[in-house]
Design a protein around this nucleic acid. Structure first.
Lengths: 194, 194
DNA sequence: CGTCTATTTGAATGTACTCAAAAGCGGTGG
DNA sequence: CCACCGCTTTTGAGTACATTCAAATAGACG
């Protein structure tokens, strides 16, 4: 049970030895998720970090009016989880759900600290992963604050054409912080202005 | 040149030995910043992580219309930086500026990786620091998306009364993602409804 | 093929915005 | 020490962008 993709990801941001990757593989479990099925539900304790081997998932919160807000869109070679719940091991408020039939690797909470102790490079990997995740989230926050919806959409299709192509509009709209109706209108504008 | 406050902060989230803290102290520099002076300007490379020993600072971006958007409000015992610029060591787009006369410790980019290698507990500390920073940013993003301005303000004064008390309204408004005028109106509502 | 969900379009609405100006507060220099 | 100046906060009036609600069309899947 090995993942080439994950191994190369680990080595992109750190230096994990083949032998050490064996240790990691030992605690990984693979899971297949059907479209619309969820790995974590609102109110669950998130017990794993999920690494997407194949497919696409989203994490989202549901507000008091029942409206879903997409926090993350995760395609191949990305991590997803309810990190808030994961690090505290208390019930969270995100749902992690498959947008397509997907394959994910599960890295359990209980093994992370031990693995990081045994493999300092893995701890470095996660330190830098979280750094980047924070920066990304900050830039997204900044975008929502300072840029009109149309510009946010244009940046998304420029920087993540693969996401724009394969993820349904309804989820992209939510990810951008607008309604599906608004994105539909924006998309029409963008299309006709070319 | 030692900081009790920083030492206890490091030990709150990890276990740093007194001796290892010596190593850290060696690379720390103290700096006094006057109100309205900045430690990093938009366009600068951010070469340090700043730990606030005393006072209050904010980091903010400036958009195409010249409007400032507060990303972080940092009081005593908190870290602040332009992390995006810091981790890439390329010019960033945040300004880090003192709201009050402040004292900060500077931890240089060039020493972090070395220190983390020598002191695994410090790497653990930063891994968990970034985890929390990410979760905090995500929750803030979620708030802006799902909660009206009034509720965001009420949550802020409930959870951070010290910030609400000492930071000028204009910066709190920006932090909440609204204009000063709007916050002024909200504050009046909240006051009269009690 | 039929059902369910996603997308598009239209019309009316509202929340926070901009612009403008007055009042309040704080710090500095004469 | 007080007067003045600049910045912050408040208040008012009009506006805009994305929203809600509603309904029609298009597309996906069993």
């Amino acid at each position: 049970m090995q993942s080439e993709l994950l191994f190369s990801n680990l080595n992109r941001y750190s230096r994990i030895l083949e032998a050490d990757f064996g240790l990691i593989s030992n605690v990984l479990n693979k899971r297949f998720v059907k479209k619309k099925r969820s790995l974590v539900n609102n109110g669950d304790i998130c017990r794993y970090l999920f690494y997407v081997e194949k497919g696409a998932l989203r994490s989202y919160s549901t507000d008091v009016n029942g409206i879903e807000h997409v926090m993350q869109l995760a395609v191949e070679d990305h991590w997803v989880a309810d990190l808030s719940s994961f690090i505290t091991q208390t019930p969270g408020n995100l749902t992690v759900e498959a947008i397509e039939d997907s394959e994910v690797w599960l890295l359990p909470y209980s093994s992370i600290d031990q693995l990081c102790e045994k493999i300092p490079q893995l701890e470095t990997y996660f330190r830098k992963l979280y750094q980047r995740a924070y920066v990304h989230m900050q830039q997204r926050y900044n975008s929502v604050q300072s840029k009109p919806a149309k510009e946010r959409y244009e940046l998304l299709i420029r920087d993540n054409p693969q996401i724009a192509a394969r993820i349904p509009l309804i989820h992209i709209a939510s990810y951008l912080g607008i309604t599906a109706e608004s994105l539909s209108r924006i998309r029409k504008q963008v299309a006709t202005s070319n």
